[in-house]
Design a binder for these strands. Sequence first.
DNA 1: GCATGTATACTTACGCTTGTAAGTTTTTCT
DNA 2: AGAAAAACTTACAAGCGTAAGTATACATGC
Lengths: 229, 229
Amino acid sequence: MGGTPRQPEPRAHRRNARGQGGLLATEIVAGALAIIDRTGSDAGVTLRSVAREVGIAAPSIYPDFANREAVILAAARYVFDDIGHAVEGAVTGLEDPVERLLAGCEAYVDYGVEHAARYRVLFSRELPGGPSGPAGPTATVGTPTVLLDDRFPPAGGEVFALLVDAIERCADAGRCRGDDPFGTALGVWVALHGMVSLWTSLGGFPWPDQRSFARHLVLAQVGIAVAQQ
Amino acid sequence: MGGTPRQPEPRAHRRNARGQGGLLATEIVAGALAIIDRTGSDAGVTLRSVAREVGIAAPSIYPDFANREAVILAAARYVFDDIGHAVEGAVTGLEDPVERLLAGCEAYVDYGVEHAARYRVLFSRELPGGPSGPAGPTATVGTPTVLLDDRFPPAGGEVFALLVDAIERCADAGRCRGDDPFGTALGVWVALHGMVSLWTSLGGFPWPDQRSFARHLVLAQVGIAVAQQ
DNA sequence: GCATGTATACTTACGCTTGTAAGTTTTTCT
DNA sequence: AGAAAAACTTACAAGCGTAAGTATACATGC
């Protein structure tokens, strides 16, 4: 697997101040994301490759992360937050609830398509932290359901909460049915996620226009008649 | 990474008959799928692990596959075929077009949820073979579009063709709009794929009933009013 | 019935990367 | 100056892909 013939491992990293050792954790996550973006998957994220990226020695990762998987999970958490910020930025200032919903959804799709590699990492494994235990609210479709509580959601929860909120605003304005915002949001999320996932996997597919397809999916799931364009 | 302390690599494989060397290719793919099913991802699929699974020496894979990636792509192709057979088996004998559509979609989701690991492998990488070149039909949404031609689709094409056909039957029977079967099928596929992908990644999520949720997604995308259950 | 050519698969080996343990040096702050 | 945090160096035991050469069993022709 011969690549470069053995770099002398340049140490470009400057030691952090005392008590600020945790700063390195941020740089480690950033390094992992850089590798994911560059290589297109998390397969190349190893303790050594991340260490090279950051400019530290591989064992220096251990004080911050137990192992390779912990690094990747931290990167996934960062990406979920990043998506949340992108969506929030896209909807702030919009008044019309339907436009607000659509703008947020488009921002979600935009992020996923533009950062295909890091988006894919989010859902390439079983994510931990959910209320898989005894109880927890169970969603239903077609009938009202319990809303998400504190324990939910493990990952991507903030983004999903934004979506539920946007749909509730539409319902409050009488623009869509409001009997089951959770179930409706679930349908929208599922459709948008499917779009991003397939879009970035099947590069050769004759995809329609990204923006109008995303709007089409959302409106169909929410139950608003699709405008003939 | 200490596991078992060095097995003597038992050779359980019986040499194939002359002219039937290609049989090994089938066993190699089966071995790769077994590893995927057992470990939950394709990360553990290496030439050596597959060889161990099959009972051959690692270099014996080379006559059939150029490298590790080729093995995984062959496994993906097998899984696409397998899904196609599952869907076809679920719809044969059904007369009502809407029931036929729903049954096929449910079978798709069933397969994906039941074989989560191998389904995930299908879309965990950029799949080759599409008409990414100069032309190829471009789908639109809301207006009729060119149907898929011979060059399309690279992967999962047979399954997608079944879906387009099922939707055309619904349209012919006047059960849904028929102006854009390709675009409608795309919406359905995207939604179902998103459901499977999220379902198997977010194990802790309070998911609704699998069957009714799948039907809900399909009917919403096709534009048939969702029956209050 | 037996030699033989050949497809089939094996053995050995090399150079590389990986995770991680153990102990050491360097920097920073008091 | 001294203590302690931060990060390094070295080392080991694996696993990896793959190149090169070798053994084995089968179908065929004599």
